[in-house]
């Protein structure tokens, strides 16, 4: 009965009012868009929130020129290895971090503009068989990579100018780490999810692996997006890209799970399910992004869905437009701005 109460109720009015189209970016290059993101960029003494678009072979920076008008100011041309994703780096300025590779990430690069002569720069941060990467606060990157015999979980610390300042390793679990999340309000804590559906907790400063906890078998292949600690419990936002519909709680795209790190016991706090009418095997979600208490994801139908994770409600739906299906959904630096992208390079900015 409790689970049934958590199944979202969607109202037509909510769908229309929650997302307002603010502006649109249309890249004239016909390359296939692979990712979109937002980055703070300072030029001529003023700091602006800019948009980064990534195609397989080029990454472009767009700055706001006028209301509803964006100008492409820089384009970095990449080599033969395709760009896979943009890696957001919180609290940084004038730095774009990207991952390149074929099926998996093979290298991580930083893209910059030289302050001396305005030339475009690229620098290699890491190479390897990289399974997961996340940009952390204080210009740090965490990544998990596999060699033939072992897994390495590594922190790379960057200077303000994008140089590698320091690096150290975290104790790896036996199984491969698939995703990382910082623990909000706990500077030295990091969590990860693994291939066997466990949550691991590290002490970032000492590199210690503090705890490994089972997520449970009900929802395999969980991906962690965000975590915060409160009242002695660790709350983790998990997504289930391949979730199957269950009678007890619908088809949860996201779950908030409370873990007691002392006992490794856990309980589900909130389910954020696919909207009614969109449930069923044919519409698991493709990929999602979580910021603050909001989650956005592209469904295989080409619709973007937005949820309030604390309410467990789907609060907005963006159906595919006449120009085509949505392929990308990313929050800008906070959850008041949603970047919605199509494969042809069109990016729409929505106020949420």
């Amino acid at each position: 009965g409790v689970a049934e109460d958590l199944i979202p109720v969607l109202l037509d009015g909510v769908r229309e009012e929650s997302l307002q189209l603010v502006s649109k970016i249309k890249d004239s290059c016909s390359c296939c868009a692979v990712d979109v993101g937002a980055v703070w960029w300072e030029a001529a003494g003023s700091r602006e929130l800019c948009v980064v678009t990534a195609g397989e072979s080029a990454v472009s920076l767009w700055r706001p020129l006028a209301p509803d008008h964006w100008g492409k100011v820089h384009t970095w041309q990449l080599g033969e290895v395709p760009v896979i994703q943009i890696i957001p780096l919180p609290d940084t300025c004038n730095l774009v971090c990207i991952a390149l590779g074929d099926l998996e990430i093979g290298e991580i690069r930083l893209l910059q503009v030289s302050s001396e002569n305005d030339s475009l720069k690229q620098s290699l941060v890491k190479t390897g068989n990289i399974k997961a990467v996340l940009g952390l606060k204080d210009r740090r990157l965490v990544s998990s990579s596999r060699t033939a015999h072992e897994q390495q979980v590594e922190i790379t610390s960057l200077s303000e100018t994008g140089r590698i300042k320091d690096g150290w390793t975290l104790m790896p679990p036996e199984e491969t780490v698939l995703a990382f999340a910082e623990v909000e309000g706990m500077g030295d804590a990091l969590v990860g999810t693994t291939t066997v559906n466990s949550i691991v907790i590290w002490n970032l400063k000492t590199g210690q692996l503090l705890k490994k906890m089972r997520v449970g078998y009900s929802y395999p292949a969980s991906i962690c997006h965000q975590a915060y600690s409160d009242s002695g419990l660790l709350f983790v936002v998990l997504s289930h890209p391949h979730a199957k519909e269950s009678e007890s709680c619908g088809n949860p795209a996201f779950r908030v799970v409370a873990f007691n790190p002392r006992t490794a016991r856990s309980t589900g706090v909130m389910f954020s399910s696919l909207p009614p009418g969109l449930t069923g095997r044919q519409v698991p979600y493709l990929e999602g992004d979580v910021k603050d208490t909001s989650a956005a994801a592209v469904l295989t139908s080409g619709t973007i869905a937005v949820w309030d994770l604390l309410l467990g409600h789907c609060t907005a739906l963006l159906p595919p437009g006449p120009a085509g299906s949505w392929a990308l959904a990313r929050w800008a630096t906070n959850s008041t701005c949603l970047l919605a992208g199509q494969r042809d390079g069109t990016v729409c900015l929505y106020r949420y």
Binding site: M171, M186, D188, A189, I201, N203, T206, Q208, L209, L210, K211, S229, S231, G232, L233, L234, A258, F259, N260, P261, R262, T263, R265, S266, T267, V269
Partner: peptide, 23 residues
């Protein structure tokens, strides 16, 4: 959820686990 579901809760879990875990 109640404490009985999750076992005894400690507000200092991070410091305690850091002190107990192998370096």
């Amino acid at each position: 959820c109640s404490e009985s579901d999750l076992g005894p809760i400690s507000l200092n879990w991070f410091e305690e686990l850091s002190a107990e875990a192998p370096p």
